[in-house]
Design a protein around this nucleic acid. Structure first.
Lengths: 411, 411
DNA sequence: CTTAATTAGTTAGGATGCTGTACGAACAAT
DNA sequence: ATTGTTCGTACAGCATCCTAACTAATTAAG
């Protein structure tokens, strides 16, 4: 229920039809396959119009007929109409410090391609990173085309600050990159016709990925929290991704919620990251000299090791996780009071240690956040490393859900 | 630029027309009166359609023709079309602890009625408060009808927690009211036909009121902060009022941002309110025994007195205001990092002492909030006590801006 | 002062999309 | 086999918007 009536844009006949086609598509996404008659009744469109629109959508390869609905009820059974999982897909790419992940998701929400490639993004020359990832991308597009799947769009999630207007990465502190026109760079490296390319922040994309899952449960207000060395939030408010004025909403890692004796990389002290970031966990869980604090050792190894210790009931590890959870709750309380989400989804290493962190964080949160009888549920993300890429694929598909006529009929 | 494609609803012929009429109306609100030709060009509608829609809007009394646009340019001058300030108005009511304020605002944004009535809401019986305010309301509706102005809707802002689904006040701590079905109570007390009645939180309404002003400057992301004994925020994100899952977004008064030696009325310690609420100012600005701390003295008197001292350069007063500003900045930094607004509008006593508070708060904020080269502007609200009522009137008018056909043509 | 050029607004005709009604199709119940 | 119900489609009708042509009002130029 949004107020303020933000500009809805002109409505002409053509837009009317595409808007209604989008309505059907989104209804199918949210509620699953169903008969034309039910679609008509539930969306408010007439049966005749629904029929016509479904035919149109089918010609574009976006929906297809399924089994007959033999519900045992009287009357003629309806033929199920469902999203077609082969016609169109979106691609999401996440560039991290030491790997690049690629995902392709169809309109039906099925992941049809997924790969994580180790890539020393931080040390390789920029051009080489772009060349290599663009090649992988091109290969994925070709491979999808061979299966008869069009790519509706591509979303790239770089590890840094994005300038949305120019489609460039303004600054990536961990890579040392500055003002890289990523959209243009990829567009020139891909063969024509190039699908639309976007940039978006990893936390926002992960939130979007989760929002698709939660929308089915009727949750349209949620917060996703990334858990890594840094911490960031993605906010879904009233079903839509919230970006803020310049796209910097959810920059919660440097909230001033910790004691001022903790210096932060940002130059200030007392940032939330310093007590809930991954380094805080590693430092408090392991004594100096412990191999967990060896920067040369792969981070995944260390996390596995830490989980083994936690599972085994190792006291210092459990104490460290509890401390993290308590500090985490402080920030979650802020997010709950400000945003009133229905769910908080924890990602990154928070999810990895969810069983240890969430119970503590949740009780602590309920004690601290304003209780209006509406607690936010805290859950662990199940998307793991692929969350951002997955969300990127979803974002790329949003265009199609908004205007299905973007996909030509001849497919 | 919203993503996530929240359900846009069915588009039928009738809705197409009303949607386009709303588009014109909102364009006129945002950009002021202009010719049909300019409207057509700027909205993307054709000249013919624009002409037809404008005629329709005029018949409903929503727009009217104005002067000729003699811009000195060649060609036939256009006749200005502008929002009609006499046809339709919205009414907002704020129930506070010791007064009730009423505002009527026309479609053109002009305040045509405004009254603040002292009313001992906290001690009078509920029925009497409702009777008296309903009578005033009815009188205002009549008076507007005599001037030929229809009331499109009424928004009531009660000082407590709202249950939107049932249209009732769930709990008002300062009044001791519980579960009062305000919408129904007012509806039964008003003579037919009753305009639609809504409830909304004061901070959210104030934010909405400010958003109308700021929208003209292209600001679609802002936060309004109420400054009273309690503190609350209203959030406008991407032009729309953000409510959160259950309508409790912006409950920032109890953020844990103060030292834990400050007990709060809510039973916890360290709430932001305890260091930026009005009581914090009065206590730190005046020594025990000072008349400023006399609860029997009207609060307005005390605020005037305090401002006199500040204007005169009284050191303890200035020190107290600076301390408030510094604590204020802590919370503003939270709001900036989470929401990335373009503007923060300070209301209540923050605005009253804006000249002393804002410069300090702003520099402090810039030091603390994440700097992505996009500072949020901090400004004082100019709406004073009427902010919430004004926003309520705007909210009531939103229906008309969304669907102008709600207003019958025969008016 | 007259004519051309330019822009505003209106009217007529055409195209498009949605709706209501009617009808055949497919099934359950009797 | 018949009846009643529901699904999906076909067709006529209607509302809307758009394009194109036209009139109206003004400036600029000869």
């Amino acid at each position: 229920m949004a107020a303020g009536t933000p500009g809805a844009g002109r409505v002409a006949q053509a837009e009317m039809r595409s808007a209604n086609m989008g309505l059907l598509l989104r209804h199918l996404r949210a509620h699953g396959g169903r008969s034309r008659a039910r679609l008509a009744q539930e969306t408010g469109l007439s049966k005749a119009t629904t029929s016509s629109l479904v035919t149109d959508l089918a010609q574009r390869g976006l929906v297809r007929e399924g089994a007959l609905e033999r519900g045992g009820a009287v009357g003629r059974p309806g033929t199920t109409v469902a999203l077609d999982g082969s016609g169109v897909a979106g691609i999401g790419i996440e560039l991290a410090v030491d790997y690049a992940s690629f995902t392709a998701v169809t309109l039906a929400g099925t992941v049809v391609r997924e790969q994580v490639s180790p890539l020393d993004v931080a040390h390789l020359p920029l051009a080489e990173v772009l060349d290599r990832t663009a090649t992988q991308l091109q290969r994925m597009i070709h491979s999808l085309a061979e299966s008869g799947t069009r790519v509706a769009g591509i979303t790239v999630s770089p590890p840094g600050i994005i300038d949305y207007a120019s489609g460039s990465l303004r600054f990536a502190p961990n890579l040392g990159w500055r003002d890289v026109a990523l959209v243009r760079e990829y567009a020139t490296r891909l063969s024509e016709p190039t699908p639309p390319i976007r940039l978006e922040n990893d936390a926002k994309l992960a939130a979007l990925a989760e929002s698709v899952r939660f929308a089915r449960e009727g949750v349209s207000d949620l917060v996703y929290l990334t858990g890594d060395v840094g911490v960031g939030a993605g906010i879904i408010a009233d079903g839509a991704l919230m970006r803020g004025w310049a796209g910097f909403s959810g920059e919660v890692g440097h909230l001033h919620l910790a004691p001022d004796d903790r210096p932060c990389n940002c130059g200030r002290t007392g940032c939330w990251e310093t007590v809930v970031g991954l380094n805080a966990l590693l430092e408090s869980a392991a004594p100096a000299g412990d191999s967990l604090r060896d920067p040369g050792r792969p981070i995944e190894d260390r996390l596995y090791e830490l989980r083994r210790r936690a599972d085994a009931g190792d006291a210092p590890t459990l104490a460290a996780l509890t401390a993290i959870a308590e500090h985490l709750a402080e920030g979650l309380a802020v997010l709950v009071d400000v945003l009133n989400p229905k769910a908080i989804v924890l990602g990154g290493y928070f999810a990895w240690f969810g069983a240890f962190i969430i119970p503590v964080a949740e009780t602590r949160l309920q004690a601290r956040a304003l209780d209006a009888g509406n607690h936010a549920r805290v859950v662990a993300s199940e998307l793991g490393l692929m969350a951002a890429a997955r969300g990127g694929a979803f974002l790329a598909l949003e265009d199609v859900f908004a205007d299905p006529t973007l996909v030509p009929a001849g497919a």
